[in-house]
Design a binder for these strands. Structure first.
Lengths: 131, 131
DNA sequence: GTATCATCTGGAGTTTACTCCAAGTCAAGG
DNA sequence: CCTTGACTTGGAGTAAACTCCAGATGATAC
């Protein structure tokens, strides 16, 4: 699969895909005879994983460390699991914080809606008086 | 309340607090005779609100627009509510995306834990044979 | 009264994560 | 054969949000 299609499929620009490869976030992708990237299934799975993690805000640096460990084989399983655990922890905390903010927003929106209703009632009142 | 205490209370550096004021994210804070900031209750509430919104990732630009509307008084209530609604929508979407990633992480961690158990069982097996 | 400390300002520097660009190569269509 | 278009590279540029700094000032501790 060529880079344009991968870009399409995951909503990541070709520039970003090449950038990820350059910095070692995605292992080097196979090329065809003329040096053009041809993503295989493994590449696609890796891209999808990175897309998922990045969309939740996991830092590139941490992900590079993780994929480096993956490439070093089974003796790094403990280290990898620790990275994932730590990131899971941070992510859960961020979700909770965002949920709090969501509640605050909901409350504020509600207040604004009441304010609008109140103003509308007042306007009607003025019209009533006007009639 | 002086800037160092505010910084302490909200976990925002003095530099950031001054920066927020400079860019109009927080209204100018009152100063004492020697020109030093003295945050009053209103200031503190505004700082807390900004802290909350920023911690959930709402862009500074949007928040500046919002606080500008607040300063323009009641005729901007509709606009303000619309900003909050839109940001609420975006935030909810981000939370859902992060929740998905959290699930993926949990699954991967579980797999790693099984892998470790498997390896441990194998090691024990080898020891059994060794005995 | 002087040394230290917190604060002030405007401006420059940093970090993270892309994003864009120029110049070059290759394959296919007319 | 020539043009068009997708792809390549290395490197430069950008955006957002801080973060740091130098130089000045004013207050506080001894």
């Amino acid at each position: 699969m060529k880079i344009a299609q991968v870009s399409e499929q995951f909503g990541i620009s070709p520039d970003t895909l090449r950038y990820y490869e350059r910095i070692g976030l995605i292992a080097p992708v196979n090329r065809n005879d003329s040096g053009i990237r041809d993503y295989n299934e493994g590449d696609l799975r890796r891209v999808e994983f990175i897309k998922c993690m990045r969309s939740a805000g996991l830092p590139i640096e941490v992900l590079i460390e993780y994929v480096n460990f993956v490439q070093q084989g089974d003796q790094t399983i403990d280290a990898r699991r620790e990275i994932l655990r730590q990131q899971r922890h941070l992510l859960a905390a961020r979700i909770m914080e965002m949920q709090k903010t969501l509640d605050v927003l909901d409350h504020k929106i509600e207040v604004y809606e009441k304010a609008v209703l109140k103003r509308e009632r007042e306007l009607m009142h003025i019209e009533d008086q006007g009639e």
